[in-house]
Design a protein around this nucleic acid. Sequence first.
DNA 1: AGGTGGACCCGAACGC
DNA 2: TGCGTTCGGGTCCACC
Length: 296
Amino acid sequence: MPELPEVESVRLQLAPVLTGRRFDHVEIADTRLTRPLDPATVARELEGERVAAVDRRGKYLIVRFESGRALLVHLRMTGSLLHAQAGTLPGDPYRRAVVRLDDGSDVAYRDVRRFGTWLLLEPQEVAEYVDARVGAEPLAEEFRPRDLAAKLAHRRAPIKAALLDQRTVAGVGNIYADEALWRARIHPLRPAHELDVAQTRALHRAIRRALELGIARQGSTLTDYRLPDGTTGRMQTEFKVYGRGGEPCSRCGTPIEKIRVAGRGTWYCPQCQPPPGYAASSSSSRPSRARRASSV
DNA sequence: AGGTGGACCCGAACGC
DNA sequence: TGCGTTCGGGTCCACC
């Protein structure tokens, strides 16, 4: 699932490929990709645009053109981009679009489940569109623990649900939310506003570390995710909790448990991440056996 | 108004 | 073996 580390890894490979290039020919073969707009109309609008920069906000890939317009690509669940020299694209039943660049190379968009979207915005629309949907960039220098605290202060939803809300922090999805909460030793069901200062600081650090490690490994490939050069990410083997139900926690050896939070599969260590009902200050990873037993 | 759950997709995994 | 069912996940939207 492309989250911030996956989209950033795609961006890092795609930026040198696209920057300065013109979209010579665009084919869009999926009506869902551009709806409600007609894909052929969007394709024609894109032709002739020259790329000024490739940015990212949260999970949005932003292809900025010299005209000031921008193409917002969201990969959702199974979207991926592949760069190939002209005439070398392999056959693919799930290919939804192809862009021919002015250097003769192709950028192909693949999406098995067709959740992904391409949205072409006018110059004055870009910032408003993005800022309405995503909050602060967690890896930006300006993002401080107090900013996270302000987002969580009055939220009664489980902390994991709050993290999945893209306006809380941009780019955290189901996988990295679980990984960050494990690192911060916070139970996914704890009401967001109950976090104390130390826990908020720990979560801020944990989010950054989980995301940075993901980027360093070029994202995680569970099934569909690929980099533009066709290779897979390497982060999936380093997950601490995600998808590891029944396996021992790498910190304490307790079997990882799976529950459902905000409608999503959620993995955590029942020993390291004390359940709600504990005082918010009990961030100790070693709650007493008796206390724990009475609250489970 | 904030929180929750369903819809959208479709391949993979699972169950009988 | 084969077929039907369930699962999953980012975002939007309806509903409480």
